[in-house]
Design a binder for these strands. Sequence first.
DNA 1: GATCATAGTCGTCTCTCTGACGATAAGCAC
DNA 2: GTGCTTATCGTCAGAGAGACGACTATGATC
Lengths: 256, 256
Amino acid sequence: MIVAMSRYDPSAFPPFAVTVDLVVLTVRDHALCALLVRRGEPPFQGYWALPGGFVRPDEGLAEAASRELAEETGLRAHSAPGHDAAGPGAAGAHLEQLATYGHPQRDPRMRVVSVAYLVLAPDLPTPRAGGDASGARWAPVAELLGQSPVDGVPLAFDHGLILADGVERARSKIEYSSLATAFCPAEFTVGELRRVYEAVWGVVLDPRNFHRKVTGTPGFLLPSGGTTTRQGGRPAQLFTAGGATVLNPPMLRPEP
Amino acid sequence: MIVAMSRYDPSAFPPFAVTVDLVVLTVRDHALCALLVRRGEPPFQGYWALPGGFVRPDEGLAEAASRELAEETGLRAHSAPGHDAAGPGAAGAHLEQLATYGHPQRDPRMRVVSVAYLVLAPDLPTPRAGGDASGARWAPVAELLGQSPVDGVPLAFDHGLILADGVERARSKIEYSSLATAFCPAEFTVGELRRVYEAVWGVVLDPRNFHRKVTGTPGFLLPSGGTTTRQGGRPAQLFTAGGATVLNPPMLRPEP
DNA sequence: GATCATAGTCGTCTCTCTGACGATAAGCAC
DNA sequence: GTGCTTATCGTCAGAGAGACGACTATGATC
């Protein structure tokens, strides 16, 4: 019986499966999008789900998340273990632990505890399907979180809840950190960064005030010297992410 | 082999033990304190550790944390599942998920994944030891996180790291939420609330500016009508926590 | 009971930052 | 060239924070 089990007796513990699930977010076409895979096996066969998989016996949680991310997208992630970690403007994606989901009935087959990770990545080509997934796609989170689920059906398991938590984390975190740069390529313009904020928050920001704010925050942006006209209009200065990870004072999210 | 295992095959998953660990914080004598228990069994026998235990097969993670908290302290917690949840000024403690720790070697006996929860509670009597703990005490976090570990030895397992993460979460969360009231009894004065901020942040705040800020934030404090002189000096108005959970604009933490 | 120490509460001033918005600059399409 | 787009600089009013003066109402001490 459980009640008779000593709380730390290793020979009599209730067995759990531990998985990682990934909320991979990017900004495409002015919209915040999440990576979904189509499940090729029951349960929820044919449903869209977050990428993820079992943690192996000899690997850490962040390590498992990194591995799944690489298998699924080819991305190299910098995990941010304690606090800051990622170097400025590096090519990979930002990865951080989101939360852990362990409702006893969240998987119909067995007791599964899933550690969710949040990944913020620059725009990528449409991912290949890999492993046991029969398809993969970028889906705008506005469709996923609105009243109308994808293709008329919700996500598998509790992945809709996990996705909502991940999106909320991303939305609030770009307020007080420089994480929005994780959605940009290594070199980007102030306007491109502003479009990231607009897509993630679903708002329109004043270009002049935004420019003043980000260029006036020490350590947020480093001028790289070049300019670009890839967005049309007047040539814009190119920047890379500065070393600052915390924005003080924060970027204020306007209310509706 | 693991690599041959289908990622969601329930019949061939690597078995893990899943535990919850609690970072229980309170403010005593102008200091932020954490609840520790002394381990009565190996490994780390005689070391101080965070309270916690195995998750039972039929209970959720927050449920397990709640149960352990009640067993250890007699506290009833309001978990805060999605966002807000706790009613204003209720008698119990605030409970929220902190993070999950699963380094392969974090427990010398076996693979254990631990979901840490953060509990913020008003000052309590010294807790009774329970279960397999041979003692329990409140320890000032300044001593625990400084260079000098308790009694010359660090905490068991990776609990020092978990504690540090919990303290950092508490410190940052009272900036932009009304969570500091969770450290106060149901009725409290502005000065008592200020002493909570001062203890958690380890700073001294201007009483006049603090008063203006908290009384000027709609929904943060509700006047309860009464007054008290329990802190000495001029009688102070009593308040209960208002319904607001988010502080906008936030309370600013002064820098050294 | 007068005095003092302790806290609480209200006001004022200055500085910084934000939001709103005008004006100018420098590319591209035609 | 004209028109359109985006980038960048500047100005101004209002909100909020830090610094601090002033006053109030208790209990403690002589």
